[in-house]
Simulated assay, not measured.
Amino acid sequence: MTLGLISLDQLYSLRFSDEFIWNVFLAVLTGPHLAGVQALCQTLQGQENALSKGVRDAAFVSFSLYLLQNPVLQFLKPMMSSVGRLPLPDLSLLVMTLLHCALFGAAFERTLRPQRALVLQLFAARPKRT
């Protein structure tokens, strides 16, 4: 089947490149957003408040969230259906996923400095081969 000059097979082979207009629109909006955030950060530089502390705390679990959210969702989704009906299943799944990722981040991301120091000590204590 053809749609004008392009067959459906060719259209499906484009994959995500058929979204280039949307992606360009997002890129055009991202530039001013980043410039605004930079200006805001320079304005608030040196001011410690609850918001900045909260953002800093949330940043400590960002990699864990990126790394684990899909595996945790894949693990919890079937378990939730076997447990029974929760009042708000999607909200419960979201909260449990965020909780798991936060616990992982607290255990591993927040302890990066002591972990690095331990690794450096271990490598420094090893005798060099001659």
Rank of each mutant, 00 (worst) to 15 (best):
T2P: 02
T2W: 06
L3R: 12
L3H: 15
L3T: 13
G4A: 10
G4F: 13
L5R: 08
I6C: 08
I6F: 15
L8N: 04
L8Y: 09
D9L: 13
Q10R: 15
L11T: 02
S13C: 08
S13L: 07
R15D: 15
R15P: 07
R15Y: 14
F16I: 15
F16N: 13
F16T: 15
S17I: 11
E19W: 14
F20P: 00
I21P: 01
W22E: 10
W22C: 04
W22F: 11
W22S: 07
N23I: 09
N23T: 09
N23H: 11
F25I: 05
V28H: 00
L29Y: 10
L29Q: 12
T30Q: 11
G31P: 02
G31V: 13
P32W: 02
P32F: 01
L34A: 03
L34E: 05
A35P: 07
A35Y: 15
V37T: 11
L40K: 04
C41V: 11
T43M: 13
T43F: 09
T43C: 06
T43E: 13
L44S: 10
L44R: 08
Q45K: 15
Q47D: 11
Q47N: 06
E48D: 15
E48K: 12
E48N: 12
L51Q: 03
L51T: 11
S52L: 07
K53H: 10
K53M: 09
G54V: 00
V55P: 04
R56Y: 05
R56L: 07
A58S: 15
A58M: 14
A58T: 12
A59D: 12
F60L: 08
F60N: 11
S62V: 15
F63V: 10
S64Y: 06
L65M: 12
L65K: 05
L65D: 03
L65G: 14
L67K: 12
L67T: 11
L68M: 15
Q69K: 10
N70Y: 06
V72I: 14
L73H: 03
Q74P: 00
F75S: 09
F75V: 08
L76A: 03
L76M: 04
P78I: 09
M79D: 01
M80C: 04
S81K: 15
L86I: 10
P87R: 02
P87M: 03
P89W: 01
D90E: 12
L91Q: 08
L93E: 07
M96S: 14
L98I: 04
L99E: 01
L99C: 08
H100Q: 10
C101L: 10
L103D: 04
G105D: 06
G105L: 04
G105M: 03
A106F: 14
A106Q: 10
A107K: 13
F108D: 00
E109L: 00
E109K: 01
E109M: 03
E109P: 00
T111P: 00
T111F: 00
R113Y: 00
R113C: 00
P114H: 03
Q121Y: 02
L122D: 04
F123T: 03
A124H: 11
R126Y: 01
R126T: 06
P127M: 01
K128S: 07
K128M: 05
R129Y: 12
R129T: 09
T130R: 13
